[in-house]
Write a protein that binds this DNA or RNA. Structure first.
Lengths: 222, 222
DNA sequence: TTCTTATTCAAGTAGGTACTTGAATAAGAA
DNA sequence: TTCTTATTCAAGTACCTACTTGAATAAGAA
């Protein structure tokens, strides 16, 4: 025992998950699956890739043990394999944020300037929820709301916000949240609401971080 | 803003750290650097690779922001870039452990059968330390002990254990620790000590995990 | 059964990665 | 200055990866 070949084999196996995460498209898949299970085609649309290519990426993730799959009729649904995967993805983002010099530029290029948006932390939101003086909007697609959301939140998918503005009474404090720091839904929702004269704020992070913090969540029975 | 190219660029950047970790030799480097800074040649010896190849791996890690380097005379010392990197490496190991089916076999092939060794958790060791009825041995190389160790531990590098057995009084409870779960020093030390009639146990994890848990550490001034 | 739809498989191509070898730097010692 | 040592650079090779294309499965509907 204890020979160098065995050590190499062990470390080679340990990094399989890192290799699987080491591709931008697969990281996007993990990020989306953090909101709940999805079919191959839905995922292909989200990451703007062909179905065949997406399928191959998913199989790579499956082999590395980062996702699971289940068949339902003619569709196959993929989901994250466990909370360890969520922790890994979060640790990776934190490492990147901790120091990619140019990461800030890339974030700005994608999400635009967020300086005009007010944000609220998880803890502040919890306090407000207890005080009951806030309306929480889940602006992710309805499917993701169903798979799990912040208790008391109202589902208002980003695409519907414009037409459903009247549902929110003028004068109430609004907090919008979405998939996470790299998701634009809440940003846009807050901008729309603010333009209409509402007091709107975005939750700093998204639903997966809320769930990971061990805070209570609510599910719609499907 | 918010166009697909920007999103791809952002995620491609986020996964740079995963790509850098996605190689067994580089993972070994990160694992070793978790014990403290090292020169290129020392690292090359540890991972059984040529200096040129090791240098290239280190530069890859440097570009990804996982390590830092400083020059001292004719040598260049590399070290981990921050605690986020340690967290990432731990999250990766936990993901792999959470489910690589064959990982167990690989661990066994490398570390051998540990069933004969008694282990102790961090919390048990803390309790024992407070009670003062235990001798703690740091069996890592002296350099790593100097860079940081469990308070009160005695430095006894694995290679010296055999010849220094007499320093430990018969009858005392001994706990040995080393670099971490994939390090063999403590295992071997415990076997040697047990064969000599001592009551020896290995700390389940290693020094980096102790430090990461926020427990007190001690340093020798160099 | 045939048709449709969702997914996977197989083969091909362009570019990336890991390692080797030998030469080039760069700091310090003589 | 020349010599030595530690590290990096550059070029080459074998293998791996991401994506494409078109064909093959596999479940359900008609």
């Amino acid at each position: 025992m204890a020979d160098q070949q065995d050590k190499e084999a062990l470390f080679d196996a340990l990094v399989e998950a890192a290799k699987a995460l080491g591709n931008g498209r697969r990281a996007e898949l993990i990020d989306i699956l953090g909101q709940g299970e999805r079919s191959v085609e839905e995922l292909a649309v989200e990451i703007h890739q062909t179905v065949a290519n997406t399928s191959q990426h998913l199989q790579r993730l499956l082999r590395a043990g980062l996702v699971c799959s289940r068949r339902s009729g003619t569709r196959i649904y993929y989901s994250l394999a466990g909370t360890a995967v969520e922790r890994l993805w979060r640790a990776l983002r934190e490492t990147a944020e901790a120091h990619a010099r140019e990461l800030g530029d890339l974030v700005r290029a994608y999400v635009g300037d967020r300086a005009d948006l007010s944000t609220i932390t998880r803890d502040e939101l919890r306090l407000r929820l207890r005080q009951g003086d806030v309306v929480v909007l889940d602006v992710r697609p309805a499917q993701e709301y169903k798979a799990g959301h912040i208790p008391g939140a109202l589902s208002m998918p980003f695409s519907d916000v414009k037409s459903r503005l009247h549902e929110v009474s003028q004068g109430s404090q609004i907090v919008a949240y979405c998939r996470g720091p790299y998701c634009l839904y809440a940003d846009e929702a807050v901008r729309l609401l603010t333009d209409e004269g509402h007091l709107a704020t975005r939750l700093e992070e998204g639903f997966p971080e809320w769930k990971a913090a061990g805070l209570p969540i609510e599910q719609s029975d499907s």
